[in-house]
């Protein structure tokens, strides 16, 4: 091999960059998100079910919220009829946070894990985390 000094340096750099994910996480605990459903309100529910299916909520909650806010603010519609035929007030504060009063243990779990930084909280008030909430 010729110019081996430079080329090996280059290759080491290349390998360093492409294998960065591997060594970047060495020794770091793999903390998987664990959204907690343990809030006083949810505890009291007989059947624990969100307004739509869990998977649907995981995938689409932001679109749902977006559609909600358009309906509420622009079309003065305030009630969501769920696919199960249930009715809900379309309100982040009154409906979502009513059950999910544990933002840190619920919202932030996945958001932090997937590095999603929603700007909801610039206006909407995070639910007050009562001592009883979400601590297991």
């Amino acid at each position: 091999m010729y110019n081996s000094g430079k080329i090996i340096t280059g290759l080491v750099l290349f390998l360093g960059v492409v294998t960065m994910p591997f060594w970047f996480n060495i020794g770091k605990a793999d903390v998987k998100p664990d959204p907690s459903l343990d809030t006083p309100v949810i505890r009291q529910m007989k059947v624990k079910h969100c307004i739509e299916s869990k998977q649907f909520m995981i995938d689409n909650h932001m679109e749902l919220l977006n559609a909600w806010r358009n309906a509420v603010v622009r079309n003065n519609k305030t009630i969501y009829v769920s696919t199960a035929g249930q009715y809900f007030t379309m309100s982040l504060e009154d409906t979502c946070f009513h059950c999910h009063s544990n933002e840190k243990q619920f919202c932030d779990q996945c958001h932090t894990y997937a590095n999603i930084q929603p700007y909801c909280w610039e206006c909407h008030v995070k639910p007050v985390e009562e001592a009883a909430n979400g601590h297991r």
């Binding site: 960065m20 994910p21 970047f24 996480n25 793999d30 903390v31 932090t112 894990y113 997937a114 590095n115």
Partner: peptide, 9 residues
């Protein structure tokens, strides 16, 4: 995409 390759990001 590194956000999917690191924890914490």
């Amino acid at each position: 995409h590194f956000r999917l390759f690191s924890q914490p990001v």
